[in-house]
Simulated scan of single mutants.
Amino acid sequence: MAGDPSSTCSYLTVNQGEIPESRDIFDAVITQIDGKSTPLSRTNRYRVEPGPHVLTLADRIDPKRVPAAADNQISKMKRLEQQRAYKKVELDIQPGLTYAIGAKLLRDKLDVDSIRDNAYWEPVVWDMRPTPCK
């Protein structure tokens, strides 16, 4: 997918249409971009310059989509680990695109050790769309 190479911006979003839960991809929250906190109020999208960026994300995986025992372990881990429950991902953002970011549930990692190590999910870009810079 290519955007407009002459564009001076791109966008990051967690709100781009229907998140493909059938592919075990769920909502995420972008808490930081390049070490700077994002606003606490939910924002539709974040404007960024093309180039490398480091995002810090928190998962918002629907607890009804995991076994009850795993959900209890995930809740406990998030309570105890706090900042360690977040994940960082580095993206090389291309100009003129909107990147839809989500949290991919790794169903083979719902054991106690993987949950404790926060290995039960990973950040993913699940959609990219050409977007003019505004």
Rank of each mutant, 00 (worst) to 15 (best):
G3R: 08
D4A: 10
D4I: 10
P5Y: 13
P5A: 14
S6M: 10
S6P: 09
V14G: 11
Q16C: 04
Q16M: 11
E18I: 14
I19S: 05
I19P: 05
P20N: 10
E21Q: 14
I25D: 06
D27C: 05
D27L: 08
A28S: 10
I30W: 01
Q32R: 15
I33R: 00
G35L: 01
K36V: 09
K36S: 08
S37M: 09
T38E: 04
L40F: 05
S41K: 14
S41W: 05
R42L: 13
T43R: 05
T43E: 04
N44M: 12
Y46S: 01
R47T: 10
V48C: 04
V48H: 02
V48F: 02
E49Q: 06
P52I: 02
H53I: 04
T56N: 01
L57E: 00
L57W: 00
L57Q: 01
D62W: 08
K64G: 12
K64N: 11
R65Y: 04
R65G: 03
V66N: 02
A70D: 00
D71G: 08
Q73G: 06
Q73S: 14
K76D: 11
A85M: 03
Y86F: 15
E90F: 08
E90S: 15
D92I: 08
Q94V: 07
L97S: 08
T98Y: 02
Y99H: 07
Y99L: 05
A100W: 03
A100T: 05
I101P: 07
I101H: 08
G102S: 02
K104R: 09
L105R: 08
L105E: 09
L106E: 09
D108E: 15
D108K: 12
D111K: 11
D111H: 10
D113K: 15
D113V: 15
S114G: 07
R116G: 10
A119E: 14
V125Q: 00
M128C: 03
M128F: 02
P130Y: 02
T131R: 13
T131P: 06
T131Q: 15
C133T: 12
K134Q: 14
